[in-house]
Design a protein around this nucleic acid. Structure first.
Length: 578
RNA sequence: GCGCCCGUAGCUCAGCCGGAUAGAGCAACGGAUUUCUAAUCCGUGGGUCGGGUGUUCGAGUCACCCCGGGCGCGCCA
């Protein structure tokens, strides 16, 4: 199915060809409703290129432009813009097509890629904390959108399960472990022994040396240390799994750092042989002499003591993803502080001859209301699990206030959908690069650009259909059993506005993925909910006469589908009641 | 020192590859409810887009400089 934007762009392109003019400029959604629905600046661009008068050029283009079937007469305005206003009957026709389409009008990409998305990546022996939320939620949303658009997505959790911190964890495990505490709360006990060891090592060189020895033994494959390590990984994974279940997130692969451990010596040898790396001050180092930006920023891939570091692991990871997973693209959803690191890794990959599209998808930090990195009152990282449970608790309280008659089960289910949805939406609705200030009040607010507001629009629609009864029920398979969409008759402005927005879902989804910007999708959904609420206020559904009643029911149905699908692409669920 | 990111209404933020008179939400103020969930809607006020210079038909957006904040830069991840 073709969007209005694509259709008009094609017609414009035909007109330019017929007028003997070069194809240039762009056709976009109008920047302001006063200018109609779509606009193009071709005449301005051409005017500049040819040194001609833009409004005159616009008129010339108009004389070759055939859009009568979808638009009112296009108008030249301002400095030479051409404005397009969709005709209600064209909107009606398109809406009917979208209603019939189980992809809601969104076309699959013509160039499907295999994309590995690296997101989340928590560290073993530490609980997931609020710092992991953006990567996890953003990565999951991008994965869902990419998949919906027809890409083959591999979600990979690059767990930090092989760092130097294990020297300390193992030392603590052997010397400080409280078995009972471990049973009660495994991760808390691991964190405790780690911290205490860390404190001791800071003041006692002997402890520091002992930790180093434990790490060496682990890396050499010492049975006892490997067993301890395995147990720590398993206990951590339980915590992660709990959080992932709450968030509704899954991975296709969980190839952590340890997965690449055996490959590291080979990676270094390879880079040395290829002349990409060299020995410098006893370490193996990659220099980027031909890259001005990195010229004074070498990358160490083997330390003087023979150990490898995370740069080595990340290069091994690129090798694996490109050579064995056959990835066309790899997206790293990792915070902004690692920008330099990934520039280096990608440059190494380029020199290895890889052509895969490697991207660092950067995002800002989560700040507390004091504008500093979000911490608990005692200065600790806020555990993600507690934060999510708090969100559900707060949502539950609101549900109980607003709708006390629901059953316990319903309340729990609804609170989870609202609470988790609110946390995700608050994150995704903001441009990913800006630091994000965490605020319970803001994210759980019922007005404004929040998950509950959108969920409420969905719930209001579902309520209409409950009242309407079984007579109007739509399933994807209805068409096969002879269900026919009711003819739409859009008469009032709020109906036309709503329908128009519904048709534009297809224009926003690919756009959101292009910039790796789910906030483009949240903005659209927010505006859709606005349009729906305006429609809801102005246009009674069940009480109106046929054929208007059926037409409005169809609009409601489609709105609910787009809201559900759109929020679904962001990993957010919708409740039937709230 | 070098580099990256950010600075838009009182607050939190949008603003796409440079487009027309810079938009939302919150807060403030004024309205709307015998009506499908008022968990809503309609309206009003509110701006030197950090500052400057430049590029051009046109700059919040691009370039350069400055100010302010955050982050990163040879053996942590």
């Amino acid at each position: 199915m073709e969007t209005f934007q694509l259709l008009l762009a094609k017609r414009l392109s035909d007109a330019l060809a017929n007028a003997g003019l070069a194809e240039t400029g762009e056709l976009t959604q109008a920047t302001d409703p006063r200018f109609g629905d779509y606009q193009t600046n071709v005449a301005l661009v051409l005017g500049k290129q040819r040194g001609e008068n833009p409004p005159a050029l616009a008129e010339k283009i108009l004389s070759h432009l055939d859009v009568d079937d979808v638009c009112e007469l296009p108008a030249v305005a301002g400095a030479g813009f051409i404005n397009f206003t969709l005709r209600p009957d064209a909107i009606e026709k398109k809406t009917r097509e979208v209603l019939r389409d189980n992809r809601l009008g969104v076309p699959e990409t013509a160039s499907s890629q295999r994309i590995v998305i690296d997101f989340g990546s928590p560290n073993v022996a530490k609980p997931m904390h609020v710092g992991h939320i953006r990567s996890t939620v953003l990565g999951d949303a991008l994965a869902r959108i990419a998949q919906f658009l027809g890409h083959e997505v591999i979600r990979d959790n690059h767990i930090g399960d092989w760092g130097t911190q294990f020297g300390m964890v193992i030392y603590g495990w052997k010397n400080l472990l409280d078995r009972q505490a471990l049973q009660r709360n495994p991760l808390a006990e691991i964190v405790r022994i780690y911290k205490e060891t860390n404190a001791r090592a800071a003041s006692d060189p002997e402890v520091r040396e002992a930790c180093r020895q434990e790490l060496v033994k682990l890396q050499a494959g010492d049975k006892e240390n490997i067993d301890i390590w395995n147990e720590c990984v398993a206990l951590s994974m339980q915590d992660f799994e709990h959080v992932y279940k709450l968030l509704g997130i899954h991975y296709d692969l969980q190839c952590g750092e340890s997965f690449y451990h055996d490959r590291l010596p080979g990676v270094v040898d390879c880079l040395l042989k290829a002349g990409i790396a060299e020995i410098s001050e006893g370490a193996v180092v990659v220099f980027f002499r031909d890259n001005p930006e990195l010229a004074d920023k070498p990358l160490i891939i083997r330390k003087r003591d023979g150990g490898f570091n995370y740069a080595t692991t990340d290069i091994a990871t690129v090798d694996y993803r490109v050579n064995e997973l056959k990835a066309d693209a790899v997206w790293y959803v990792v915070g902004a502080p690692q920008t330099l690191h990934f520039k280096q890794i990608f440059d190494v990959a380029r020199r290895e001859g890889y052509t895969a599209d490697l991207r660092h998808i950067i995002f800002g930090s989560v700040l507390g209301e004091d504008r500093k990195l979000m911490k608990t009152r005692s200065g600790e990282n806020v555990p993600l699990r507690e934060l999510l449970e708090e969100a559900c608790k707060r949502a539950r309280k609101i549900v109980e206030e607003k709708n006390p008659n629901l059953s316990e089960e319903e309340k729990t289910d609804i609170a989870e959908k609202i609470g988790i949805g609110a946390v995700k939406y608050a994150d995704l609705s903001q441009y990913r690069m800006t630091d994000y200030i965490f605020s319970w009040e803001k994210m759980l607010a019922l007005h404004g650009n929040t998950a509950p507001y959108l969920q409420n629009a969905y719930v209001r629609i579902r309520s209409i259909f409950r009242k309407a009864g079984e007579s109007w029920h739509r399933h994807p398979a209805d068409e096969e059993i002879g269900w026919k969409p009711m003819p739409l008759c859009l008469a009032e402005l709020p109906e036309i506005d709503l329908a128009k927005r519904l048709c534009q879902f297809a224009e926003f989804v690919p756009h959101a993925l292009n910039g790796f910007r789910p906030n483009i999708l949240t903005n659209y959904l927010f505006e859709l909910a606005n349009s729906f609420h305006a429609f809801y206020e102005a246009c009674p559904v069940l009480k109106s006469e046929e054929p208007r009643r059926s037409s409005r029911l169809a609009l409601c149905d489609l709105t609910a589908q787009v809201l559900q699908r759109g929020l679904g692409l962001l990993g957010i669920k919708v409740p039937e009641k709230m």
